[in-house]
Design a binder for these strands. Sequence first.
DNA 1: CAGTCATATGACTACCTGGTCATATTGTAC
DNA 2: GTACAATATGACCAGGTAGTCATATGACTG
Lengths: 221, 221
Amino acid sequence: MVKQTFLNLPKEKRERIIEIAIEEFASKPYTKASLSNIVNRAGIAKGSMYQYFEDKRALFRYLLELAAQEKLAFLKEAEVNSDVNFFETLEKVMLAGFRFNLAHPQLSRIVANAMEGTGEAVIQEFMMSGRKMACEYFMELLKRGQEGGEVSPDVNVRLTANLLNRILGEGLADYILEIMEVDLHEFLTKPEIAQNISEDTIKNIVNEAIRFLRNGLEAQS
Amino acid sequence: MVKQTFLNLPKEKRERIIEIAIEEFASKPYTKASLSNIVNRAGIAKGSMYQYFEDKRALFRYLLELAAQEKLAFLKEAEVNSDVNFFETLEKVMLAGFRFNLAHPQLSRIVANAMEGTGEAVIQEFMMSGRKMACEYFMELLKRGQEGGEVSPDVNVRLTANLLNRILGEGLADYILEIMEVDLHEFLTKPEIAQNISEDTIKNIVNEAIRFLRNGLEAQS
DNA sequence: CAGTCATATGACTACCTGGTCATATTGTAC
DNA sequence: GTACAATATGACCAGGTAGTCATATGACTG
């Protein structure tokens, strides 16, 4: 899908192209994102792009893989160790996802775009498999939590995994946008907004979300 | 935006056009959905469509308004009365949303598509105001719940409202697709799948989700 | 120098889109 | 039947797209 030619490119050029492609695909839905636009902005010929990638889908998919890779790096850094305490693990996963969102708002926007459907079958399959992996991970986590006695045996593991998926993904992202009082466009075009959110703020939000997941909403009687 | 001409149309024709438009916009992202396609399938001339709606956005927006209207009807039917018990209210709202999703899978797909961005400013504004309304409703609900002593005073109302928004929306929808073991396309094109989900199944899922929201995941010690 | 291979190029094609408009058809009232 | 307004029509336009390909430019080898 990515052609060797692209990988042979000098790092600088490669990164410039990718950066511009990310901007394009983050700022509009897949179908509206334009290769002509990208090549013009990057100062390369249309034909060159097709020496680098099979087609539009291949480029987009490359960006998605890049996003996955980057997110995984954040998870690695968080030293997630699924063996220990369930809620601690969940907290680390949430924190890592959060940091990824703030460090790469455009990449995470691209993923969100791809999630709701680009109209390209190959992309949808790719996203579906990613979604499934995430859900299975949460399910595994929940099961172990139940075995360890931390998580109530009553919870429906599959249902909860799906809810966690949306909570950690879009749910938190929505909230951040709301409290920062910026619209999506601002958030994407001014990376300093995301970068300037303090470590404390992030930890606070995560703590509150974890408390919600732990205890629910009901007042303790 | 909708022109009088369209509203003057015989009910039958009007409904046929709308039905086909819904199919088109539900089956592909906004940009890829094609007016030419719709008019061909509906057996009317392209120009006629522009006698009915200002432009593509207007038609799409009309569908969104129709979806909102329909969903509101389900909420009305659920006899949601925000004054009483918080969790009961939440349950009714959840049930109504669920039933709407199953009764109108294509409409709810269109809403989801629109949510993640069509690239049209006017549509985004419309969706954003809808999202805000939903969030504010949940916030109001949560606040009253706290005042009534049902909801823990510790919960971050704004955060929780955002999470509820995603849980009741996409979260449950994801789960349904997973347990039915169908992909989105099947679910949209074969309405009998959604229709055949038993009342018991629905109530069970809602109960489980409510229990999760009530008590959280942690085992009671 | 010549020869060979990887890379770069941008004019070009084929296609499809949203949207328009002069014309034709219909319905209605007198 | 005639006059008038509402509605329907589809050929047409301008604009944009993804993707191609013959040609040009390097860059490296002997």
